[in-house]
Every structure is written in structure tokens, then in C-alpha cells.
């Protein structure tokens, strides 16, 4: 029972880590970034390369996401910023193309093989929790996710930067009329989203393996989380990840064949009665 609960939490944590960046980018900059999955994969690949060259796993967990974030910033400046003021369809098509391009680049640089990021030996083995053995690494993933989310909340709630980000999600024009360079905000937010995706990638690496399509495969689940939780709502994303992660895990335990059906059914029902998701779009909180 404890094991099943932890399993639910773990899947929720992974979904949350990856979808949260997507959510922040949409919430603040109103960009639906279809390349987000690819940036998650990019973080995983950076992490994989670092760890296989002997970099400490924890150092890679810090550095690889930053590198992914840097790539995100460059992409934002070069590709998204010039078409920001056009219709959303442009960014959709462009970021989709970008994801295809990045996924293709993985093949060139890292080949099409399925790889694993080597787990640090300190996180191998299992921990006895009230008579149930649970893998240390999974517990680490849970703890790390909680830290990341708390850190993010602190950034958003306690700092001037967070204040600006929250304000920018509602009335961006007024934020620039207060002397803030919105271009920098958009760039920073995109970078932050990519850092979060990168953290997800490195953390998932030892568990879910690393391969070129890993991001694009994950993107669909992220959008389910986003749509259920309400586009651009941080609390909604947390709630929705828990819902989707739990429904999927329990589904596999008790209903096996219908687990995925349940998730999509849940999405359909929620959209039918709450078309904007559980916590509706609007201000980013």
C-alpha cells in the first residue's frame, strides 16, 4: 500500500517537473512551446554526457539544466522573440519544427541508442519504510521535486523577479510601463522553463533511460497535465500532476488495460465541466 502511494507520487513528481516549465512559459509569455519535450531530452543528454565523462552526478544535476537553460535563452532570442507579436499559430509551428530539428540533432551527436545516466552509487539500493523496501533513487526524485517546487514558489512569491513574473502574466504592457524590459523577462522565463525541463531530464535519466524521442513522447502527458490543471496555473499543474500520476498508477495496478483510457477520460470529463481546467487560466499563481 505504501509502495503504491509512493509510486503514485513518483510519477506525479516526474510529470510535474517536466510540465511545470511548459506551464511557466505559457503562463507568463503566452508561448506554447512544443519544443519543451526536446529541451527536457537535451538536459538528459547533457547530463548523460557529463556523467559518462566522469562528472559527479549531483554536479551534472546542477550544470546540465543550466546548459539546457542557456540553449533555451539562445533559442528564444533567435527564433521566438522575432515572431512574438504574431499569431500563436506561428510559434506553434515554429516550436514544433524546432522539436523535430533538436530530436534529429540528438541522433547526429549522441546516436539513436537508448542510454542510461549512471546512478550515483550512494543512491542505489532500497530503504526500509515501515516494512516496505523502496528504491533510494525514487525517494531522492521525490525529495528533489519537492525542493525544486518549493524553490520555484519562493522565487515567485518572495523575490522582486517573481513579482515581476507574476505581474507580467497578467498585464505585460503595464510591467513595461514600470520600466521593466519585457524582452528580458520573456527570455529569462524561457530560460527558467528550460532549466526546469533540464532538471527533469537529468533526474529521469537513470530511471527512464535517455533516447532521442524521450521528450516528444513525454510532451503529450505534459499537455494532459496542463489542460487538466488549467493553462498557466502553477497550483493547477501540481494538482493535475498528482491526479494524472495517481490515476495512471492506480489504473495500471487495478485495471491494467484501461489505465491510459482513464487518464484521457478524466481529461475529457474535466474539460466538459470545467473547460478552462481545474484552476482556470488567468493570473499565474
Amino acid at each position: 500500500m505504501i509502495q503504491i502511494c509512493l509510486n503514485c507520487l513518483l510519477l506525479s513528481a516526474l510529470l510535474l517537473l517536466i510540465s511545470i516549465g511548459l506551464n511557466i512559459i505559457y503562463g507568463i509569455s503566452r508561448v506554447v512551446n512544443l519544443a519543451h519535450g526536446s529541451l527536457y531530452a537535451l538536459g538528459a543528454y547533457f547530463g548523460y554526457s557529463m556523467v559518462s565523462y566522469g562528472v559527479n552526478f549531483y554536479a551534472a544535476l546542477l550544470l546540465a539544466p543550466l546548459l539546457a537553460g542557456l540553449c533555451g535563452v539562445v533559442l528564444e532570442r533567435l527564433i521566438i522573440e522575432p515572431i512574438r507579436h504574431r499569431d500563436m499559430t506561428y510559434t506553434l509551428i515554429l516550436t514544433y519544427g524546432l522539436s523535430v530539428f533538436i530530436d534529429g540533432m540528438f541522433k547526429f551527436i549522441w546516436s539513436d541508442k537508448v542510454q542510461f545516466i549512471q546512478m550515483p552509487s550512494s543512491l542505489r539500493g532500497t530503504l526500509n519504510l515501515f516494512g516496505v523496501h523502496y528504491p533510494n533513487y525514487r525517494l531522492f526524485v521525490l525529495a528533489a521535486t519537492v525542493c525544486v517546487i518549493l524553490g520555484l514558489l519562493a522565487l515567485l512569491e518572495k523575490t522582486k523577479l517573481g513579482m515581476i513574473m507574476r505581474a507580467a502574466s497578467t498585464i505585460p504592457e503595464m510591467v513595461s510601463a514600470l520600466g521593466v524590459n519585457m524582452k528580458l523577462v520573456h527570455m529569462g522565463v524561457f530560460g527558467l522553463g528550460c532549466v526546469l525541463a533540464g532538471i527533469g531530464g537529468v533526474i529521469a535519466g537513470p530511471l527512464l533511460s535517455v533516447y532521442p524521442m524521450m521528450g516528444s513522447e513525454m510532451l503529450l502527458s505534459c499537455f494532459v497535465v496542463l489542460v487538466i490543471g488549467g493553462l498557466g496555473s502553477l497550483r493547477g499543474a501540481i494538482l493535475a500532476s498528482l491526479l494524472v500520476g495517481t490515476a495512471q498508477t492506480l489504473g495500471f495496478v487495478f485495471l491494467t488495460d484501461f489505465a491510459m483510457v482513464i487518464v484521457y477520460l478524466m481529461m475529457a470529463v474535466i474539460l466538459l465541466f470545467m473547460p478552462k481546467g481545474l484552476l482556470a487560466e488567468g493570473k499565474f499563481d
Binding site: R166, A167, I171, A177, F284, D285
Partner: peptide, 10 residues
């Protein structure tokens, strides 16, 4: 501005 633009959520 006339619409005041108080930031909701802040």
C-alpha cells in the same frame, strides 16, 4: 492608465 491595471494576484 484609465483602466488602472492593478496586477491581480499581487
Amino acid at each position: 492608465p484609465a483602466e488602472r491595471n492593478v496586477f491581480p494576484g499581487l
